[in-house]
Each structure stands twice: as structure tokens, then as C-alpha cells.
């Protein structure tokens, strides 16, 4: 049984169709990368699996529960794109608050170590650099010791070094047996991390498979070329 799935999900915002019938499964222990250009429907798919939006038609479930249910929430964590986080709380206070939402959170010291925040626990969030802020958001996503992690474009705006550091934290989470849904428009990121890639465009899944399969399907060598090829086919 997949840890999370979308079945024939559509989502309309007024007249705009963000998802046009999507099937998606995240299997235990895998990292599924949802890859696509801006506005393709990636964030909408994640928001439905987080219970923040309901599908117009179709069905979504997380660990067999409704995405908005407490049972689902307790077993997952999420790093979302957020424009501003309360800046006058210290790193440690943010983590302690989120840890209190879960019955069996990681120890504070463990969360700090995993997220790479040692030495800056006492800093106010507003005084952190972009990379450090993103690490705090990662800490909030994993502090509840979840089995499933949603990462919505987690490395946007990060420099190469911070991006690679976050990749290794994601790999460490997978090594502990966790499952991940990652959305990204960085092809390199999907190639480096994903066990499986679903390419999404205009609200539809246009290709799905391992990074190697995706490349083979379009007879291109690099994933970037494959991606462009798939987008072209979609445009007709």
C-alpha cells in the first residue's frame, strides 16, 4: 500500500483548472520528485495531500487517512514555500513549539543536529541567512519524527553549497526509512535525489518513471533535454 496517493484528482480554482485528473502514488521509502515548470500544478498537488485544499473531484489519502485528519498530520512533516516566518522567535523556540504538536517528537538536540542548526539555536529567526532559515523550516518539518516528508521547492533561492547540504539531509532522512514527496523545477535536483520522477505539466502527469526511464523514453541523454522534449510534446 502506498504511503500517500492521489486518485483521479482534479482541482479547479474558479474557471482555472490547476489539476486535470492526476494519479500519484508515493511508496514507502522512496523519494518521488514532482517535476514541472511554474504553474504546472505541483504546489496544488502537495496542498491537497496536506489537506490545505480539497480536490474538486477524485480522492486523496495519506497513510489511508483523509489528508486533513489528525492521524495523517501526526505521521507527516512539511516544508512549504512561505514568504515570512515570525522573526522575533529564537530558532530553539520555534522548534520547541512545533515539537509540542507531536506525541513522540525527536529530542531537541537531535532535531538541531539533523537540521544543522548547532550553534545558532539562540538566534532570532529574523537574524538568520536564507540558508539558515531554510534549515529551520526543515527542522520544523522533521521534528515530529514523521514517516513522510513533503518538500515544496525546498532549495529555491539557496546557493549551491546550501542546496547540497540540504540534499544530504534529505538523503539521511531516506536512509532512516522515511518517504519523501519533493517538488522542484531543478532537474538536477530530481536526478540527484529521486528514486522516481513524475513530470507534470498543465495539471497532468506527462511522464513517470525512474530518472533513467524518463531519459530513455525521450531518447535523450540528459534529464534536462528529456524534460524539454516532454514539454514540447505537450504543447503540440
Amino acid at each position: 500500500m502506498p504511503v500517500a496517493e492521489l486518485r483521479a484528482v482534479t482541482k479547479n480554482y474558479g474557471d482555472v483548472r490547476a489539476l486535470a485528473g492526476i494519479d500519484l502514488e508515493i511508496e514507502r521509502g522512496e523519494l518521488l520528485a514532482l517535476l514541472g515548470p511554474n504553474g504546472a500544478g505541483k504546489t496544488t498537488a502537495v496542498r491537497i495531500l496536506l489537506g490545505l485544499n480539497s480536490p474538486t473531484t477524485g480522492r486523496a489519502s495519506v497513510f489511508g487517512h483523509q489528508p486533513a485528519s489528525q492521524a495523517a498530520k501526526l505521521r507527516r512533516g512539511a516544508l512549504l514555500q512561505v514568504a515570512r516566518v515570525p522573526e522575533t522567535l529564537r530558532v530553539r523556540e520555534h522548534i520547541e513549539l512545533f515539537s509540542s504538536y507531536y506525541p513522540k517528537p525527536l529530542a531537541l538536540s537531535e532535531t538541531i543536529a539533523i537540521a544543522g542548526l548547532a550553534g545558532i539555536e539562540k538566534r532570532l529567526f529574523g537574524d538568520l541567512s536564507g540558508g539558515q532559515k531554510q534549515r529551520v523550516l526543515f527542522a520544523l518539518a522533521i521534528c515530529g519524527n514523521p514517516d513522510l516528508l513533503f518538500l515544496d521547492e525546498p532549495t529555491v533561492g539557496l546557493d549551491v553549497e546550501s542546496r547540497r547540504a540540504l540534499w544530504s539531509r534529505i538523503r539521511a532522512f531516506l536512509a532512516r526509512g522515511g518517504s519523501v514527496l519533493l517538488t522542484t523545477h531543478y532537474l538536477e535536483e530530481a536526478d540527484a535525489l529521486a528514486s522516481r520522477i513524475a513530470v507534470i505539466n498543465k495539471g497532468r502527469i506527462v511522464a513517470q518513471g525512474t530518472p533513467t526511464e524518463i531519459k530513455a523514453r525521450t531518447a535523450q541523454t540528459g534529464l534536462e533535454d528529456a524534460f524539454l522534449e516532454l514539454m514540447k510534446q505537450e504543447v503540440y
Binding site: 496542498r47 496536506l50 489537506g51 490545505l52 489528525q70 498530520k73 501526526l74 512533516g77 512539511a78 512549504l80 514555500q81 512561505v82 514568504a83 515570512r84 516566518v85 515570525p86 512545533f98 504538536y101 507531536y102 523550516l137 520544523l140 515530529g144 513533503f150
Partner: peptide, 17 residues
Amino acid sequence: AVERGLGWMQVKRASPM
């Protein structure tokens, strides 16, 4: 208004709070 408009409330709502 700030926490809703700039996405922080979404992070809270996705959590088990």
C-alpha cells in the same frame, strides 16, 4: 493578516497543531 497573507498559517495548518 501577516501570518495568513505570507503563508505562515499554512505551515501551521499542515502541522498537527
